[in-house]
Design a protein around this nucleic acid. Sequence first.
DNA 1: CTGGGTATGTACGGGCTTCTGACATACCGA
DNA 2: TCGGTATGTCAGAAGCCCGTACATACCCAG
Lengths: 407, 407
Amino acid sequence: MWSPSETPRPEQPTGRQPTVLMTAVKAGRVNQGRVLQALHDLGPLSRADLARLAGVSRATIGSIVQPLLERGLLAEGEPQRGATPGGKPARPLWFAPDSPPLAAVHLVPGWVEAALVSADGRILAAASGRFRVTAPAATVVDCVVDRLNAVLAGSAARALGVGIAVGGIVESTSGTIVACNLMPELSGLPLGPLVSERVDLPVHLDLHPRAQAIGDRWSGPGRGEQSFASIYIGEAIGAGLFLNGAIHCGPAGAGGEIGHTVVDVRGRTCRCGQRGCWETIATRDWLREEAARLRLPAAQAMTTALLAGLSAAGNADAKELFERYAHNLALGVVNLQQILAPGLFILHGDVIAGGEALRGRVERQARSQLPPRSAAEPQITFGSAHDRTTLLGAAGLVLSQSFPLVG
Amino acid sequence: MWSPSETPRPEQPTGRQPTVLMTAVKAGRVNQGRVLQALHDLGPLSRADLARLAGVSRATIGSIVQPLLERGLLAEGEPQRGATPGGKPARPLWFAPDSPPLAAVHLVPGWVEAALVSADGRILAAASGRFRVTAPAATVVDCVVDRLNAVLAGSAARALGVGIAVGGIVESTSGTIVACNLMPELSGLPLGPLVSERVDLPVHLDLHPRAQAIGDRWSGPGRGEQSFASIYIGEAIGAGLFLNGAIHCGPAGAGGEIGHTVVDVRGRTCRCGQRGCWETIATRDWLREEAARLRLPAAQAMTTALLAGLSAAGNADAKELFERYAHNLALGVVNLQQILAPGLFILHGDVIAGGEALRGRVERQARSQLPPRSAAEPQITFGSAHDRTTLLGAAGLVLSQSFPLVG
DNA sequence: CTGGGTATGTACGGGCTTCTGACATACCGA
DNA sequence: TCGGTATGTCAGAAGCCCGTACATACCCAG
């Protein structure tokens, strides 16, 4: 039961994308999505609150919310007194504790993690497993389905669907892994349909940084934000761009390859073949090389946490390197801000260990590098340390697909 | 009668953006916009064609189109025989020759151009004027209104509205010019409301590169494209980003400042204070400096056309510089492609004079700099030489605002 | 000249959604 | 016990899209 929910119509007179019209029922789904989003953004709200928020009548909100209550996705909380005396107390709406859960998978080279997530973002069950990077595709699929079945077994209610986040290049419309540098066996694998058939649930496949961005939006620092960039800085660098209320996705799932934007055209050669990619000066590898050059202690095991410690302890070389690393990180942020002006940048991965010392430095650097005329100063935030964001985002993929926010 | 058409609701419980819901009538407007877009993309189409294109019944298209016919925006053409024999000949729909026109203004330092544009993108009348860059704001407003009245007088039908494209930083929601480096007198000027009051028409103000992108979309190489970047390369560099069927606009109208993204962090200092902005190696100024360094003939008046000529004539230095310039241009394109993957890049401004020789070089350079795994190779196109695109785009602003394509 | 075939445009009822106004409900305080 | 106030709901109306059926217009074969 493979269901990308929007199968492209088979034949079009021209080669371009079809013109798609708005329908009453589509409008209804969009509105349901907007209400869910508002609840996620602002916490439990009564129908009256939602009506004021959207500028519509309470009756309208009632009719939008009704199907969600009947499906068991939402539930009414205890009546609560408002600030003003008098009046009927409002019954806040919130995600039902026993709502149909969402299944999520995070697949990276050699490792897979599956989880069952409640609609309000709590992880109900989790299971993970390792596999050989060189394992054949079938083994990987088995591993994914195994872990998925393990977490699905823990729930009496049938899950709404499965979201899969993959590190690599994917085509989300067909659910196919186009390429995966570190697991070449998976290239061309239609993982979405395969898993969908085995677990008999709709499956949504997408890029890891994009899922991460959705996770930030649903239950991270991006909550309630209209635009932000969610950047992963680890062995590689990628970004999920949330722009004007929707995750950005180029043709065939491209985009977000911010790690391979050139910032130092005469710099060192990147493994992608280009010179001076951001990755060459902003990943841990760069940090360790520079640390070794400066003969810092434990250079080969250098982390942002260690460096922050050395810097705070007064090591001049470490201090300089720390500042330079912040500068390098800020470079990519600044470029993105100039182009898209998301305003908010949520950093994940290795940098998080650098803590407030690093965050503040990056933010200061970024702001000083931007022209003062910029209306809103960009804000830098770190994701949470125990990084379940991607997993939550994978779950959010299911909701995003079920309730599209934009027509 | 200032009308940004979507005045934000006055008071919200929270500080964030309001939740906005979909309405039947909104859906109707969106569908009207989609139909107009399809017509603009594909030329005159019958109702049956449109129905097939959108996958809906002919009756639906009929009801969508009816109000547009009654408003005089569209008209039925002569019955035309289809390819197959038999059947009632289709009556193609197209923009009415006597449809209500759109007014457009292009305002740059020292110069203003106004035009009356028909709905199908023909320029019906034009007027331009100069003013001193240091002139007070009132003078500039007078100049704009004068030229506007001049072109408006030529039409019996009342115009739908006025679109104004401004080189500078604007806030489109309030119609205010936030800052304008080369005309500091205009900073903070609420040009939109001022003009709207004087000509008694709704006015839509936006950034020059964004208007340019809309122009490309409505009547340029971007026609029918879902995503592309429209880049202006002149004394400065700016970009309008058309992403997934909508023009991208950051908070307060920010974004698109691609000229000040860093590509050569150890390069020369930009006037913005940063080092190695794309502008420092991709504008005409760089070209002339390098030409002078190489002692090329007419270095101080060097243009891409001249350089292309010298290169074709066999001048080795010119050839090398030409290639290097193409490389520099490609740098920005590649970065944008990595981040957003628009797939299509429409270049305007000085570079156009470089002709196919330059276009081909930039495209080749860009493709060679991108990893081969990229699904779709980026395409480079030049705008038309007699560049009326911005003016047409300013007119398109009016339509875009009247018929939003995305709910 | 006539009738079959085909494709276009339109009329009508049905379903879905939101909007408006009115009504029942629930709590507070006098 | 009775106003005052805020919440949630019900019924009717309006707007939009959808499916079907019907009138229209043309070609072509006989």
